[in-house]
């Protein structure tokens, strides 16, 4: 594996970890319905991007 590949891999892992942590935190947050707002019409915030 080249240095470039290794850098790409580390970036992917960091991005995935950050995104998944944020997604799970938002999903189970009492303030936010389900997966955020993108698929929700449950409140006035519906339609607002994640």
């Amino acid at each position: 594996m080249t240095t470039f590949d290794l850098t790409v891999l580390l970036l992917i892992l960091a991005s995935l970890g950050w995104w998944l942590w944020r997604y799970i935190a938002r999903t189970f947050s009492a303030k936010c319905p389900g997966s955020g707002c993108h698929s929700c019409n449950g409140c006035s915030k519906g339609g607002r991007p994640d």
Binding site: I12, L16, W19, L20, Y23, S35, H38, S39, P49, D50
Partner: peptide, 20 residues
């Protein structure tokens, strides 16, 4: 728009995870 936003979010991440 909802579907496309979902594609740009959770589906994209899911695809990368599976690829990894």
């Amino acid at each position: 728009g909802d579907f496309l936003r979902k594609i740009g979010g959770v589906i994209l991440v899911g695809s990368v995870l599976i690829w990894l």
